[in-house]
Amino acid sequence: MEWYAAVDLGATNTRALVADTDGTAHGRARRPTPQADGQAITRAVVATLERARDAAGVAPDALAAIGVGSIGPLDTDAGAVVAPPNVPADRIELEAALSERTGAPVTLRNDAIAGVRGERRFTDAPENTVYLTLSTGVGAGVAVDGHVLHGHRGNAAEVGHLSLVPGGRPCGCGGTGHWEAYCSGAGIAAHARSLATDHPTRLDPDELDAAAVFAAADPDTVTASVAETDAVERLSTDLPEAPPDGEGDALATRVVADAVRVNARGVAALAHAYAPELISVGGTVALSNSDLLVDPLPDLLATAGLAVPAPDVRETPLDGDAVIRGALASVLPE
């Protein structure tokens, strides 16, 4: 039997699996991604893969190929991640390190590009599909007429850095008004922190993350505010009227409402750029808050004045495995 491995290198977690030729996983491993230099992250990737291989009972030299879905930006010519905005590393060597350790060939893909490969291989996703991830960062993988777009050095559809809010919030990459600055886990937390300096909030600035912001927001107020006909075009300029005690935090509610609106703008941009039949949404932020970030999208797109047919929008049926399954699909036999 031939064995294949896949790695999902995220800004928050690193995961690996080992599977047979049918794509059935026989061993898995997971660990937090070190918030350290590139060498430390490379070592963590290798160690995670070896743990998954050992869990599958596979010999060290028995892997036929390894697929990697990784945060970007990438240099696929060199097999490395270069200057990623969401981890403190200048460069993360992947292909050479994994190949040297295992003797197997390695294929490196952007994580969202891997995600759309997973959708196409393991679900009913049509030929024109976008996989959108809202996680520590924001990104997309695109299939047009059945062809997955890779782009120069593997960086097609880095949509998290589309400027959707003129003069808007700073992004971790150094730009402003980017999709990622409003809708990623890191961006949502940073947005809340910036408002907390001038506005009252029950949130603890020292414990702020996206999960805390969503937990503190009032979902009914968010839903009502984004249901207005111009909601996609307009961001909040004031905090919503503070709900009674126990029903939500006004600052958190504004941050979440802004995330919903900007996310709809971004999805509309994807529809115009690629004319997908389906946009499948994954990533930890989206999957943990799909009632606010995914479910409203069809209605919001209906009021966004699309010049192309509106795509179907769904939460990915691969749950948290879209990227790692897509990395596997990149190396499995057809």
Rank of each mutant, 00 (worst) to 15 (best):
W3I: 05
R109L: 14
H147Y: 04
D8C: 13
V255Y: 09
H147A: 01
R254V: 09
A89C: 09
D206S: 15
A322S: 06
A80D: 07
S99Y: 08
R120D: 08
A250M: 06
T303Y: 06
P126V: 03
W3F: 08
A44G: 05
A157T: 14
Y131Q: 07
E180F: 02
E247Q: 04
P244E: 06
P60M: 06
S236R: 08
A322Q: 02
V87F: 10
P126E: 04
A36K: 04
I188C: 10
E334T: 06
G185C: 01
T316F: 10
G187H: 01
L132R: 09
L300K: 03
G57N: 05
C171Q: 10
L132Y: 11
L300H: 02
V116E: 10
P298C: 08
A36L: 05
C183F: 10
A25T: 15
T201I: 07
L195I: 01
H272W: 00
Y274V: 02
E158R: 14
T76M: 07
P60A: 06
L251P: 09
L195A: 02
G146S: 03
N128Y: 05
G167Y: 13
P311H: 10
N110W: 08
T303E: 09
D54I: 10
P219A: 13
D258F: 01
R234M: 04
T176S: 02
P298E: 05
S184E: 10
P34V: 02
A112S: 12
V142A: 12
G118A: 15
H147V: 06
D75H: 04
D77R: 03
A62E: 03
V82E: 07
A156P: 11
A329L: 01
A271T: 13
L108D: 14
D20T: 11
D37A: 09
E127G: 03
G151K: 00
H26M: 14
S280E: 07
R153N: 09
A273L: 15
L108A: 15
D220C: 03
R314M: 10
L332I: 09
L318F: 11
V68L: 02
V45G: 03
V260A: 14
V116S: 12
R202A: 14
A273V: 13
L74S: 11
A16E: 11
G320R: 11
V255H: 08
T316Y: 07
T133F: 02
A80S: 08
D8T: 13
A78L: 09
A310F: 12
A140F: 06
T237D: 10
D90F: 01
V255F: 12
W179Q: 04
I279D: 11
R261I: 11
A215V: 05
A310Y: 12
P309S: 02
E180Q: 01
L108I: 12
A310K: 12
P243G: 07
D124T: 09
I71C: 00
P333S: 06
D77H: 06
G167V: 08
P85Q: 00
D299R: 14
D204R: 03
A196G: 12
S280Q: 07
A186N: 08
A304T: 08
T21E: 15
V68K: 00
C183H: 14
A302N: 12
S290I: 05
D75F: 06
E180S: 00
V226C: 06
G154K: 09
H152L: 13
A52R: 12
L134F: 04
V144D: 02
R53M: 14
E334I: 05
E277M: 04
A322V: 00
D204G: 00
S280V: 07
